[in-house]
Amino acid sequence: MLNYTLRRIAIAIPTLLILVAITFLLMEAAPGSPFATERGVPAAVLANLEAKYGLDRPLIQRMGIYIWNIVAHGDFGESYRLKDRTVNDLIAQGFPVTLVYGGIAFVVAVVVGVSLGVTAAVRQNTRLDYAAVGITIGAQVLPNFVMGPILILVFTLWLGWLPGGGWQGGQWQYIIMPVIALSTSYMASIARITRASMLETLNSNFIRTARAKGLPMRRVVMYHALKPALMPVLSYLGPAFVGMITGSVVVDLIFSTGGIGLFFVNAALARDYGLMLGLTVLLGALTVVFNLVVDLLYAWIDPRIRY
């Protein structure tokens, strides 16, 4: 176990380094100086600006300093466009929001998805099963950027029940639609995976034994079948988490929730390299760490897994 943990961490670190390197290289390859759009800047001023942001140093050195600042001081650098605001400021402002609706969406996707999948599997080939399968197939083609507009159309424009955007310190009516938009397609995938693996588990020998010794179905499902059936779901949590982090960009754009995603889009549109770099590294690190945790959990729960 310890060996495996160390090896997994040994893969995670180069992954992060590669991500930072790719980001740095791409920015280096961008034509012109990041300040080139400010027309009429004298060469001396430009040189000073670049010196201020450390752009006059060689690439490797900059990368080293950047990584050191993150590791040692938790400092993600500065925005090149939003003057006098550091990336840390913007993260502090947007990240809590993203964390709230993202966290709720993640829990909703897992809880609803697993319940739907288990119910469908236990009642296989009944109307309930068909309804659940229908929902999961339907939800599969409704990614967040499709779900968001549909929700606004129905609940804001037609029914007038919910506000079409905003955050207002996280009141519940502002959270509902972002959560649904973000979780729907992952809920569907989780339900599909759960159903398939639950069916497989229910057909296995140890379940037949449990049934044969007279245990009620409910107990068999809850105590015997659930754990092995959820293993494939666990391995899907990593991709689902990544998808939700990426999806939060769309949610922030549609619902103006003011999360971190909006900064990301704006940074990309304004070619704000400093902010882009900071956000990419932060979100990338989150993803890698989460994947690491899921992998370790997986190995811990299922002793058969050895790499």
């Binding site: 790719i22 920015m27 990426t246 990301f264 070619r271 990419t280 979100l283 990338g284 890698v288």
Partner: peptide, 17 residues
């Protein structure tokens, strides 16, 4: 390793640069 890099961000970066 390539798989665990969040590609959407790299893609956006690529398009931006």
């Amino acid at each position: 390793i390539l798989k665990s890099i969040p590609y959407m961000f790299v893609l956006i970066l690529l398009l931006m640069v």
